[in-house]
Write a protein that binds this DNA or RNA. Structure first.
Lengths: 218, 218
DNA sequence: CATGAACTAATTGGATGCAATTAGTTCATC
DNA sequence: GATGAACTAATTGCATCCAATTAGTTCATG
């Protein structure tokens, strides 16, 4: 694990968690200090994050946190739907029994943690959700696909601020996960792809609604 | 235009043109010297190229030119097909008259330059082809989509070594371009997307065949 | 002749220093 | 009070330097 890797991971984490406000300037020296390293690996990480779309760099002006408008967000979900659909197709053809068991366990936990009531834990849902989607990507087993998704997946996660799902949407989302596992288990690539498309179509609606609500509020 | 931009453009150009053999180690100091700059901007460019999938970096071992096997290549074409299909959908909804005229002119020139005979010019075909696809991406008007495609488009171009198309394929490819313009002109997103999918399905076949032929030969 | 320890050369990742550019502030002028 | 020239502080992009790691070579040993 190099300083570059460390900087990349930590900065990506901060950007996705909303630690930095959209549009804010990211000063290399400040980041370096807060990460306990010099500017060199930080600058390399910023270049990588720029090519992932999480920050934007301008000549002699350094990096700024990307501002997400409705248009960008919608495209991100379109792209993510296509790529994750492809990942599902591939996963349906490659998944082993133990892969499916792991995904199933994750889907069950997401269902439980997302159920309305005292045990609800949205942080856990979000974290497990990431694990589920990453799991499918792993089963799809294609470095190229992972590379292509880096530019958009993270951004989509960023958009889904916590609490954007209604109870009904959360439940449907959880059931989508279970249905995806069922589709993968049956080896039906079309089915798996379709459910993923439905899953992200709903996610897109919720993300855009959440954005507009928070805009109207603040 | 910073040294970083210069390094990124030139190195990308070299990688796509096959200047460096697949799998070869790219020594930062050598690159820096050949580009007339220090290692710092070169290293940043290599990080970016890595996130685009054109090179691969390993801890304490620097960068190597990515080796494209059949599997990787097939996935690249799958992804490119999905993303360019989306670009076509968006272009069908956004293209202005002058956009369509420009694309049409390009399609006509590709048809002419690709026709078997003394006027055939494969370099021109390849170059115009890139222009055509970039034109559609431009009309689609989405920075996110461009970002996502950077990871795969270049790679796909790389794979299509000159002369990989048969006469029949070249002709069909040229007609695809004209058909795409017609679909865009009619504003039919489904039609435009379908033709693009067909176009890249054929491209994929040709690219994989070319790879296996050259492998059998050399 | 094969094997591997010991040494050397090359190369990497990262820290630091510096000129050039940009952003911010002060202050004179209308 | 607004406008903008002149100066200052911050910040960038890049070159250079250095310790740590890797790759390559030599040479002793079985």
């Amino acid at each position: 694990m190099t300083q570059f890797d460390s900087a990349l991971n930590q900065l990506r984490e901060r950007l996705l968690s909303g630690f930095y406000s959209p549009g804010v300037a990211l000063t290399a020296a400040d980041l370096a200090e807060s990460l306990g390293m010099s500017r060199t690996p930080v600058r390399e990480a910023l270049r990588t994050l720029a090519s992932e779309g999480l920050v934007e760099m301008e000549m002699n002006r350094g990096a700024r946190v990307t501002v997400w408008d409705d248009e960008k967000l919608a495209v991100v979900f379109d792209i993510r739907s296509l790529l994750e659909g492809l990942a599902c197709r591939r996963a349906a053809e490659r998944a082993e029994a133990h892969d499916l068991d792991e995904l199933d366990a994750l889907a069950q936990r997401i269902l439980a943690k997302g159920e309305p009531g005292p045990d609800r834990d949205e942080d856990a849902v979000q974290s497990l959700n990431s694990e589920f989607h990453n799991g499918i990507l792993r089963i799809a087993d294609s470095p190229m696909l992972e590379t292509a998704m880096h530019g958009v997946v993270h951004a989509a996660v960023l958009a889904r601020t916590r609490g954007s799902y209604t109870d009904e949407e959360q439940r449907r989302s959880s059931l989508h996960h279970l249905e995806i596992v069922a589709a993968l288990r049956s080896g039906d690539a079309n089915w798996a792809e379709s459910v993923m498309h439905s899953h992200l179509a709903q996610g897109r609606i919720a993300a855009l609604r959440a954005r507009n609500e928070s805009e109207a509020a603040g």
